[in-house]
Amino acid sequence: MALIRIDELRCKGCGLCTIACPHKLIVLSDKINHQGYTPAHITLQDKCIGCALCAEMCPDVAIVVFK
């Protein structure tokens, strides 16, 4: 069981987490945040294995991981 939390206010929508996730669980949202970017969000939280590669790749330290 693993859980990630993406700070959607801090996310700049670069998408580097989407290519880091080995299960391709992260996608960019259609909504726009207060900075004008489309933040990332996780689709199937249950499938997350907590590898933290998304958080490692995030240039804005916007992701925290629990396991």
């Binding site: 240039p59 804005d60 330290v61 629990f66």
Partner: peptide, 29 residues
């Protein structure tokens, strides 16, 4: 549940001015 990834203590909890996708933020971390 244990937190396995968090912001390092030596980094301030602030938004950076870097453009989206700039690796400066990663190298800072």
């Amino acid at each position: 549940m244990k937190q396995v990834f968090k912001k390092p203590e030596s980094l301030k909890d602030v938004q950076t001015h870097f453009c989206p996708g700039c690796h400066h933020g990663t190298i800072h971390r």
